[in-house]
């Protein structure tokens, strides 16, 4: 390779490094914002839990009637919700979710259970479509910054499908956020909502209500506590979906940050190698010229 070719390659690798390190910084900034949004959800989730406890204590044992708490008799169709990102360039972030989802689907099908896919993020949708596994729900365009309305929409459609007996179980696959460097694939059963989650709150409510009956009797309810409880229970599903979306977003930015950092480091290495090669080529050229001069001088004597 001539000196000029090497120089050009160094320039283009330097440009690539500029892009990857810019993407790394953008991802780092977005990651911080995504982390803040995860912590912003905590007070709301806590307040919903406390209200459930209060309503459950006042309503007595009328919770059991909610259709999303009831397990279906037969498992005929399972719904699998894959939470991926709209964009790539984030290492194994998208592919590991798709792989886990397809593996679970294969297991269900081996047991004779039909599988229905739902997908969040363009990456998930397009790889399902590519495999001719037409997703029943496609939710795209917000994975950079998911809003609660997105979670409510997704959770609402899944709950409607569950209550209307179209599916008998709903599982969610997403990248759980552990740290900026680590994401783990999480698989959770979304529906039926684990009775245990709600039971736990009710058990706590009963403990707390001991001796404070009079306190509860003074509380005004609009409408009846049982009715309030019926709406509070689906909120657990919405919050779970929202948390999964937020964690997935944080994971995506973390994964992209890591991927871009190693791309930048790799580019630096390539630049070093190329610079060495360029110096060698220059040295070779100089040596060549000296040889020519010496040879010329020798021929004169």
């Amino acid at each position: 390779m001539s000196q000029r070719d090497v120089k050009q390659r160094i320039e283009s690798v330097k440009n690539i490094r500029k892009i990857t390190s810019a993407m790394q910084m953008v991802a780092a900034a977005r990651l911080r914002r995504a982390e803040q949004r995860i912590s912003a959800l905590r007070p709301y989730a806590g307040a919903i839990r406390r209200m459930t406890r209060q309503a459950a204590a006042a309503a007595g044992s009328e919770v059991a009637g909610n259709p999303i708490l009831q397990e279906h008799d037969k498992l005929e169709t399972a719904a699998i919700l894959l939470v991926t990102g709209d964009r790539g360039l984030a290492g194994a972030f998208n592919s590991q979710i798709i792989r886990a989802g397809l593996l679970a689907a294969a297991e269900y099908e081996a047991e004779g259970v039909k599988v229905r896919f739902y997908a969040v993020g363009r990456r998930g949708v397009s790889s399902l479509v590519f495999r001719k596994l037409d997703p029943a729900g496609r939710y795209v365009g917000f994975t950079d910054r998911p809003g609660y309305a997105d979670a409510r929409h997704i959770a609402g459609e899944l709950m409607a499908a569950y209550i209307d007996d179209e599916v008998d179980r709903v599982e969610i696959f997403y990248n759980g956020y552990v740290s900026p460097l680590t994401q783990e694939v999480r698989r959770e059963v979304l529906l039926p909502l684990q009775q245990a989650t709600v039971d736990e709150e009710i058990a706590k409510a009963e403990e707390e209500s001991d001796g404070s009956e009079t306190h509860h009797a003074l509380v005004e309810y609009e409408p009846e506590p049982a009715e309030i409880l019926q709406r509070l229970i689906p909120d657990y599903v919405e919050i779970s979906v929202f948390r999964a979306l937020l964690e997935s977003t944080a994971s995506e930015h973390g994964a992209r940050m890591t991927a871009m950092r190693s791309a930048s480091e790799n580019a630096a290495e390539v630049i070093d190698d190329l610079t060495l090669e360029m110096n060698r080529a220059r040295q070779a050229e100089i040596t060549q010229e000296i040889m020519e001069v010496v040879a010329g001088a020798e021929s004169l004597t």
């Binding site: 006042a58 003074l218 509380v219 005004e220 309810y221 609009e222 506590p225 009715e227």
Partner: peptide, 16 residues
Amino acid sequence: VGSIGILANHTPLLGM
């Protein structure tokens, strides 16, 4: 249930 206005020292309430 309907419109509601809350002033200071309102009775304990849980509403949807």
